[in-house]
């Protein structure tokens, strides 16, 4: 893999990590309100995925969406401003943390209802095929979403119609506080693809290069053969479900969280890049300071941005 791409992956994972840490801090200071779900711990899954896509390919995700929109290349300033609910936010302050969206970057949300976005991706895949384009669409959702009818209806349609859609389960083990083993009759989630005779894969979602490899295969399958794929990425969130859920809640043990942190995707990737001499310690330091600057600028932008105009509350209900 080209150095450029490796460095982009590292930079993006770091940006997401630092962005989320700062968002948490600002949330604690009550600058950000509402519901806020951090992507810390899952960065490798989102970044490995986007690294395997072209800029014109579509990405759709659920409400833990800050990492996805940043990986798709949206401006961190507009994203942070949206968390603040400011008029300069990427959804003009009307969406908030869970409903980010950037049509220019082909990021189609940011959706607040579990599994609700999955059929949309199926339709985007349909539109790509209808117009005979060669794009693909990736839809990400948590493992809690696979128990919804919308997931199954979508997989069936995508295989039946041979659509260029990749269904990505980001299995972070907990649907809020309910572990997979208490919610699912099967543990190996990509098995669900068998019901639809669909290609499937399972990957360590804490390893960005492994995610990239698996996603690249699926993207090629979608682009060249117009065939869908179901991928389960096994990952873990280091923070609570949302800002109102403590890191060490009663549904999982402190030991489990600490044990998972030993597999920190960012740390592991950094070590690999140093070992392979892709980056030096100086490079790492420089990237760290550049990233900090980007994140602080985003906070500064959000802080200084005006609230939405009150008149805007009636705007955009209808075209």
């Amino acid at each position: 893999m080209k150095k450029e791409k490796l460095v982009w992956m590292y930079r993006m994972m770091l940006l997401i990590r630092r962005f989320e840490e700062r968002a948490a801090q600002m949330y604690g200071m009550q600058k950000i309100g509402g519901f806020c779900h951090l992507y810390i711990g899952q960065e490798a899954t989102g970044v490995g995925t986007v690294a395997a896509m072209r800029p014109e390919d579509y990405l759709i995700s659920a409400y833990r969406d800050h990492g996805h929109i940043l990986a798709k290349g949206s401006d961190p300033k507009a994203v942070m401003a949206e968390l603040y609910g400011k008029g300069t936010g990427i959804s003009k302050g009307k969406g908030g943390s869970m409903h980010l969206f950037d049509i220019e970057k082909r990021y189609l949300g940011g959706h607040g209802i579990v599994a609700g976005q999955i059929p949309l991706a199926t339709g985007v895949g349909f539109a790509i095929k209808y117009r005979e384009e060669d794009g693909v669409v990736v839809v990400s959702f948590g493992e809690g979403a696979v128990h919804q009818g919308a997931f199954h209806e979508s997989l069936n349609l995508a295989k039946l119609w041979k659509l260029p859609v990749i269904y990505l389960i980001e299995n972070n083990r907990y649907g809020m506080g309910t572990p997979l083993e208490r919610a699912s009759a099967v543990w190996d989630l990509s098995q669900k693809a068998c019901s639809y005779d669909m290609a499937r894969d399972t990957v360590d979602g804490m390893d960005v290069l492994a995610v990239y490899d698996v996603m690249e295969k699926a993207v090629n399958r979608a682009r060249k053969e117009s065939e869908p794929t179901l991928i389960e990425a096994r990952t873990y969130r280091f923070r609570g479900h949302s800002m109102s859920d403590p890191v060490h809640s009663h549904y999982r043990t402190r030991e489990e969280v600490e044990d998972q942190k030993l597999k920190d995707p960012l740390k592991g990737f950094q070590e690999k890049l140093l070992k392979d001499k892709v980056l030096t310690k100086e490079d790492i330091k420089e990237i760290e300071s550049e990233t900090k600057r980007i994140v602080l600028d985003s906070v500064d932008f959000a802080e200084k941005s005006a609230e939405p105009e009150l008149d805007s509350r009636f705007e955009d209900v209808y075209v």
Partner: peptide, 16 residues
Amino acid sequence: SESAIIGSAIGAAITG
């Protein structure tokens, strides 16, 4: 599959 019918329609509509 009404959920997928309407949902796919939305996905197709937002992409043109």
